Every structure is written in structure tokens, then in C-alpha cells.
Simulated assay, not measured.
Amino acid sequence: MRQGDAFVVKVNDFVTRETAVQPALGFSSKFLNAGQLGSDTIRPGDTLSLTIWENVDDGLLANKGANATQLQQVQVDGAGYIFVPYAGRIKAAGNTPDGLRRVITSKLDAQTPDPQVLVNRVAGDGATVSIMGAINGQGVYPIERPTRTLSAMIAKAGGVSIPAEVAKIIVKRGTQSESVWLKDLYDNPKMDIALRNNDVILVEKDQRAFTSLGATGAQARVPFETQTLSALEAIATVGGLQSNLADPTGVFVFRNEPAEIAMKVLGRTDLVGDQRMIYVLDLTEPNGMFMARDFAIRDGDTVYVTEAPFVQWQKTLSALTSPLGTVNTLNNLAGN
């Protein structure tokens, strides 16, 4: 029913189903379909060590009397190339060490008989990710064989420093930013995405909250402690109903409801924009506690518990009698 500019709705199974909307976090296909980076893929900035054996006593590269040459600290330039004497400028980035070995061998084969080449990655500033926020080890971490995926990298950084139930993981890749609940990351292996160079991983605490008012144990803005929160859990979170004040027949949830949900709840098709909704729960009904257990609280909700009629009557009586008490006090003082 409509009251002023708000709709008052008694909660039942239908209302519970239609309003059970929670923020959906997860990665798009662009993130999910990105393959894992090979830890042995050479990238600009990497440093290589080359060892070249020649099957002659007086080779192109080896010193006299030696048949092996070592080229240490060969830097892969910004364009991804290295220079090898007699082989020239070779594209190294994108190759594995074994792939680069074959390329160099092919280049030298025409100039020295049966060359043998060994390529190793030494060090460098290749693929890395930045991790920050509520994490035990903030910093910049390389993408290595054990840390190619999101969960592995979080573990490498020491894990999150907040309860897992309220931890949200945000991954920024270029101009795109997507997020997932930490619990969903562990429960759903599909969400354990492969990392990319220059990814930024931010761990933050869930910012959702509801407001508690009336005859409850606390009058406050209360943060969510779990991904989902029912009306019954919300009341318990703030200390439950005050036994000497609360009216269990009058538990109200105030919410600005999106038009598409409000129209389903009200059975209408003519609403535009967010609607002010007041959902009413009666905990004394046979299924009242079950309704409160199943009704989902959302970010920004206000949970208000009314006072019992007897308490309201006491307040009214006190307001009426207090002036009489003041008059009697004055008369008593005047008589003394």
C-alpha cells in the first residue's frame, strides 16, 4: 500500500525472493580467457646469459685455445632485441630461452660448423604486478612459475590482512578494473585468473553497511560482516531486540528500491526511478522468524524496530504527569 511517498509492503515468501538481490562480483570473459604467461617467456628488460660452443679450435667467437664463449649480461632492449656477434640483431622478446637458442644457432650455423648454444635468463625487470591495500606484504612482485595466477600471487604476498568474508579483490588491467570476492576466488577456480604484466591488485574491505535504529542494542551504522546478511542476522549483529522496549511485531526495513524490483514486488509496470519502500516484518507470526531469516538486507538499508505499545503508553503518561509533579513540588516548597 502507498503511504505518503513510500510503499509499505508486508514481507512474505514472494517479496523475499524478488528482493534477494546481492552485488554480483566476478571477472569478464576478457579476464577469464587470458592464458597464463609462461615464466620462461623473454621480455624487454630481461637479462640473458649466452654460452656458445664452436666445433673448431679457432672459432669466430672463442679465444684462441678455447672452444666456448660466454656472453654475460646481454640486455634485451625496449624493442625486445639483443645483439649477438656474427648473428646480428635478433628478436628475443616473446621467445622462450630454447626458442631463442634455436634462432641463434640457425644464424651462426652458416658461419661456424655445428655451433651449440645455451641461453639462460639471469635477471631483469620483466613481467610484474603491484599489490596494495589490506595485504600483509604490499609491493611489486614478478610473475614467476609459482605465481602466474591471482590466488597464488596473493599467497606470495602473505595473504590478506582482513577477514576473508569481507575481503574484495580488485584487479586493474590497463584502463579496465574488475573485482571478485576473495571467498568466491577460492570457491570458484574459474575466477582464479591468469595475471598480466603491470596488473595492479588492490585488496579492500567490503564498504557496505546498514543503519540500525529504534529498540535495538545499538543505534549505529553497521558494516557488513559477511557477503550476505539477513534481517535476522542484522538484528543479532547489533545486539538483538531490547526485551523491555522492542515491539517484535514492528520491524521495518527502509530502502530505496530500483524500479525494476519495486514493480515486481508491487505488481505494477508504471514506476520510474528508485522507489521508497518500507518492508514490514512481524516476528510473532508463525513464520515470522523464517521470513526475517530469509529477507536479505542490502547496502544502505535502515533497520528500525518500534517500541512496544506499553512503553509508548508509559512515555505518554510520563509526559502528562510530569507537569503535575512539578506543580506539587512547588506547592510543597511554598508550604514549608
Rank of each mutant, 00 (worst) to 15 (best):
M1W: 11
M1H: 11
Q3W: 05
G4E: 09
A6E: 14
V9L: 07
N12H: 05
D13Y: 06
F14H: 10
E18A: 10
T19C: 04
Q22P: 00
P23T: 12
F27L: 04
F31P: 02
F31R: 07
L32Y: 06
N33R: 15
L37S: 04
I42G: 01
D46S: 02
L48M: 10
L48C: 09
L50K: 11
I52C: 05
G65V: 07
G65F: 10
N67Y: 02
A68G: 01
A68L: 11
Q70A: 13
Q70D: 10
V74C: 05
G78N: 14
I82G: 04
I82Y: 01
I82Q: 08
V84D: 08
Y86L: 09
R89L: 03
K91Y: 01
A93V: 07
T96F: 03
D98Q: 15
V103N: 04
I104A: 06
S106Y: 06
A110N: 06
P113A: 10
D114C: 00
N120R: 14
R121F: 05
A123K: 12
A123H: 03
V129S: 04
I131P: 02
I131S: 01
I131L: 14
G133C: 11
A134Q: 15
A134N: 12
I135W: 03
I135A: 07
G137K: 13
Q138V: 02
M153A: 05
I154F: 06
A155W: 01
S161E: 10
A164T: 10
A164R: 13
I170Q: 15
G174I: 11
G174E: 09
T175W: 03
Q176W: 01
E178R: 08
S179N: 11
S179P: 00
L182K: 05
K183Y: 04
N197Y: 02
D199N: 07
V200C: 00
L202I: 13
Q207A: 15
S212H: 09
A215V: 07
T216F: 01
A220G: 00
V222E: 11
T226C: 00
T226Q: 13
L229M: 15
L229F: 12
A231S: 09
T237S: 08
G239Y: 08
G240N: 04
G240C: 08
D247G: 08
D247V: 03
V251R: 11
F252H: 11
I261S: 06
A262R: 08
M263P: 02
M263R: 15
K264C: 00
L266M: 05
G267L: 08
R268S: 08
D270M: 12
Q275V: 13
R276E: 09
M277N: 10
I278A: 10
L281G: 03
E285Q: 15
E285V: 00
P286D: 06
M289D: 02
F290C: 00
F290T: 06
M291E: 15
D294S: 13
D294Q: 12
R298P: 00
R298Q: 15
T302P: 00
Y304K: 10
P309I: 10
V311H: 01
W313G: 02
S322F: 03
G325F: 11
V327F: 07
N332R: 14
